[in-house]
Design a protein around this nucleic acid. Sequence first.
DNA 1: CATTAGATTTGAAACATTCTAATCTGTTGA
DNA 2: TCAACAGATTAGAATGTTTCAAATCTAATG
Lengths: 139, 139
Amino acid sequence: MQASRPFAPLVDRLKQAGLRPTRQRLALAKLLFEPGFRHVTAEQLHAEAAGANMRVSLATVYNTLHQFTRQGLLREVVVDPGRSYFDTNTGDHHHFFFEESGDLQDVDGAEVQLARLPEAPAGTKLGRVEVVIRLQRQK
Amino acid sequence: MQASRPFAPLVDRLKQAGLRPTRQRLALAKLLFEPGFRHVTAEQLHAEAAGANMRVSLATVYNTLHQFTRQGLLREVVVDPGRSYFDTNTGDHHHFFFEESGDLQDVDGAEVQLARLPEAPAGTKLGRVEVVIRLQRQK
DNA sequence: CATTAGATTTGAAACATTCTAATCTGTTGA
DNA sequence: TCAACAGATTAGAATGTTTCAAATCTAATG
């Protein structure tokens, strides 16, 4: 009955992604995936880990975020020049971006309908289509 | 008959935007707006200016790009972590992003139809809606 | 043409991110 | 169980982009 061990789901998730479940990766996975969907920067996650008495270097945080992204456990969101956000929601969705605060919020994929899209130019194939809805504070 | 003077259109454009038509701003405006629509980074524009024997510091390039953006002469496009592109096309359009090369290409606004969009959350109002179509090399 | 608000410049600083080389640790198979 | 090794982690240096600060310059005005 593996499912009753506290870390088993995360361990399995890492193994399925082809990543060794090391102490650091497990700690970061815990911070990332247990609280529900989140958007974090590397620096934020590093600070959180430090706050929770997990010793993880910033370089490892970067490595881990990129590995997780490459394996489809995270999605990188680029909306803010000079800072990358990583999104734990890898499903079909888009984003509200609050320009004032720099915050991101998920928008369910069903709430955005793309009725028409151009074809991919010759020699390329369509990847992800990202919709960012920028918001300003109402005045 | 001002319109016959070579720099008059650019001078007017800057003045209308409330910006003093200084030597540097005119030189950069010339590089940006005369060849048609373009996507440039600060570093690229600085190199171009240097190549054309225009003495402009990198700080001024950054200042100018941001001022032009604030005044609606340019549009900032964020697709690449750690680098900002500035687009001289400020009309209704979206972008192809070639992940392999990092190149951007305009997609006319009419080629993308957003049939459904969520409402802006309370206290905010809709800004720009950006659609980025990521492309991978066909294999 | 003198004044001055605004623009420009250089160089340093601030940031985020990546790299490097040394050390450590899960995993594997004996 | 444990030795061996591929892979992971680390600190700190390095890189690249962007911003800042203070001194100098210049376009616009009267």
